[in-house]
Design a protein around this nucleic acid. Structure first.
Lengths: 191, 191, 191, 191
DNA sequence: TATGAATGAGGCTTCATTCAT
DNA sequence: TATGAATGAAGCCTCATTCAT
C-alpha cells in the first residue's frame, strides 16, 4: 500500500523533528538525521535540497497540523465565546499531545537562521482567528479594539498556557489549569 | 579615565549582542565578533573561555537590566493594579527601547544550545512579580488562582504586547496599544 | 584492481608515517598529512576520527609488521641460541630496512600524548620471546633468572644494536656490527 | 642568602620538569608552567627566551647531574670490571631516585621537536665511559671490538635495566635485579 | 626584574553538500 | 531512487610570545 520512497521521506521528517527538538537545529547534523532515519546521507539531499528546506517543510507541515487541530469541532459551537473556548481547548490538547511540535515551532520562530518566507506564509493559516474576533466585536461581545492586537495577545497568552498545561502532573490538574487560563483570556477579550 | 581592560570586554559584549540579534548565535562566528569589536581573536577567549560563556554572560546582564527597569518607580504606586500597570509600562518601554535585548532573550530561551543554569538563575529575578500577584489575591482584587499560572499568563501576554508595541508606527499609536494591552491583562487577572 | 577507497586510507597512513618520523607528531599538522597524501582534509577524518586514532592505527600496524618480520624462518632453527640469533638478525634487518618505523615506534613509546591502550596491546605480540627464553632456561643454556628481566635486557640491547647497525657505512660493516652485537647479547644471556 | 631572582628561575625549571614528564612537552603550555611555578607568564620568557630554550636548559642540567652521579666513587675502584659495576650501580640508583629525570631524557631524545645541538653536546659528558672500555680492551679483560659499539650496547641495556629496577616492589628485589642485570652486561662485555 | 593583558597564526575537527556508481 | 566516500570551507579554540607599565 505504502510507497516505499515516501516512507523514506517520512522517516527523515519524523527523525528530524525528534532530533531538532532534542538538540536544536544547529546541534543536529544532517548526517545524524539520515543515520537515525536509516537512510544514506545522500538520500536526505535527494528529498530536500538543503537542510533549510527540510526545516521549512517540517515547519509547514506542523503549522498545517496545528491549524487543523485547532478548528476541530468549531462549527458545532454557536457563540463566539464558545468557539474561542473550543479553539483554546483544541490548542492546549494538541500542544500537550505534541510537545515536540510546539518546541519546534518556538525554536523556528526565534531562529534568525531560517528563511522568513515560511514564517509569514504560516501566519495565513490562522486568519480564521482574526475573523472570529471581528465577529465578536460586531456582536458586541468582544472589546472594540484593533483585532490584530487582540489576536496577538490571545495567541501569546495561549502559548504561555500550553507550556503551563504541559507541565501539569495529572490530567485533572491540567483540566483545571486550562479552564482557568481560558477564563483569563476571555475576561481579557470580552467587552 | 576608563579601565582600558574593562573597555575591551565591554566592546566584545556590546558587539556580540548586536551581531547575535542580527544573525543568530550560530550565524555569528566568534571571529566576526572580535573583528567588529576591534580586538584580536585571542582576546575574546581571554575574557570568555568559550562562546557559550560569552552568551551566558550576556544573558545574565540583560536579565538583570530588565528586572531593574521593570521595578523602576514601583514603590510610588499604591494599589496592586497600579503597580502592575507601572510594571507593564516599564516593561514595554524597556522592550521598545532595547529591541535587541528582547530578541536576544527570546533566542536564548528557545535555544537548546545554551546551558540551562543561566536560564534558571534568571527566573529568580522576577519573583517580585509573584509576590505582587499574591498580594492582589489576598486583597481580593486578583483572581484566586495559582499565582504561578497567573504570572505565566501575564508574562506571556506581556511579551506579545511588547512585540506589538514595538511595531507601532507612531508614539501615540504605541501608547494606545500599550493601554489597551494592559487593560486586556488586567481584565484577565482581576477578580 | 585496487579498492580505491582503501587506497586513500593507505596513502594517508603512508604519508603520515613519513611525516611523523621527519617532523614528530606535534610538528605534523593533519592538514599537511592530507595535502601530501593528496586527499581533502575531511577525508583524513573520515577514515580516522582523530589524529590520535591515526597514530594508534599506525602503531598497531607497525608492531604487527615487526613481530611478523622477527619470527620469519625461526621454525627452521633448532637450538634456542640459533633461534635467538635468527630473531636478532631478523630484527636488525627489519630495523635497517625500515628506519622510519623504528623511529616512529620510539617516538610513540616516549610520547605522553598517546593512549596507552595501544601500547599495552602491542606488547602481547612479543610473548614468543619470553617463551623462547623460558625454553632456554629449562634446557640449561640460558641463565636461570627472571625471564622478564632477560627479555627486557635483550630487547633494550637490541634496540641499541639496531641504531648502531643502521648507521653502518657499508653492508659488510653492518654485518660485522650485528654479529658482534648478537654475541654480546648471547654472552649476557647464556648460562 | 638566596637570590630571590634565581629562586623564580629555579621554580620554573622545577615545575617544568614535573609537568613535562607528566604531560609531555606539547601537552604542557608555558602558561601552565608559569602558573604552577607561581610566576607571571612574562617572567618565564624573561628567563628563557623561548620554550625550546627552557627545555634545552633543563636537558643540560639533567645530563650534567646524571654524569656526576654516575662517576661518584669511581676512583676508589681498581679494576675495569669493578669500575663498570660501580657506574652501573650509580646509574641505577640515580635513575630510580629521579624517575622524572629519566623520563624527561627519554622524551627529549625521541622528540624531533628539539634542537639537536643540545643532544650532541650532552653526549660528550659520557666520554669517560668510552675511555673505560678502551682501558679494558687494552688490559684484555673486555672484548676487542669497536668501543663505540660496546658503549652503545652497554648504555642501551642499562636503560632497560633501570626501567626494570624502577618497577621493583621492594628494595631487596631491586638489588637482585640490578646485580643480575649488571652480570648480564659484564658477561656481554668481557673477553 | 616582574607583570599579565593582548596578540594572531595556526591547529583540530565538523558538516552541509556533491557525485560517481 | 539510493548510496556513502569524498570534499573543503569554516568554526572554535590554544598558546608561544610581546610589550607597556
Amino acid at each position: 500500500m505504502r510507497d516505499p520512497a515516501t516512507d523514506k521521506q517520512e522517516a527523515i521528517l519524523r527523525t528530524a523533528l525528534t532530533l531538532f527538538t532534542e538538540r536544536g537545529f544547529f546541534g543536529t547534523p544532517t548526517s545524524l538525521i539520515s543515520k537515525e532515519a536509516g537512510v544514506a546521507t545522500g538520500t536526505l539531499f535527494f528529498y530536500f535540497r538543503t537542510k533549510e528546506e527540510l526545516i521549512d517543510t517540517l515547519y509547514r507541515r506542523i503549522k498545517e497540523d496545528a491549524a487543523a487541530a485547532m478548528c476541530r469541532g468549531i462549527e458545532k459551537e454557536k457563540s463566539v465565546k464558545a468557539k474561542l473556548y473550543r479553539i483554546g481547548l483544541n490548542a492546549v490538547a494538541w500542544g500537550t499531545e505534541h510537545p515536540e511540535k510546539i518546541k519546534f515551532m518556538e525554536q523556528f520562530a526565534h531562529s534568525q537562521f531560517v528563511s522568513t518566507t515560511a514564517q509569514e506564509e504560516g501566519m495565513s493559516r490562522f486568519l480564521f482567528l482574526m475573523d472570529l474576533i471581528r465577529e465578536g466585536i460586531l456582536q458586541g461581545t468582544v472589546k472594540d479594539l484593533d483585532p490584530e492586537l487582540l489576536v496577538s495577545l490571545m495567541a501569546s497568552s495561549m502559548s504561555g498556557l500550553i507550556a503551563k498545561a504541559s507541565s501539569a502532573a495529572t490530567p485533572s490538574e491540567r483540566e483545571m489549569i486550562v479552564a482557568q487560563g481560558l477564563d483569563f483570556i476571555w475576561d481579557g477579550l470580552k467587552a
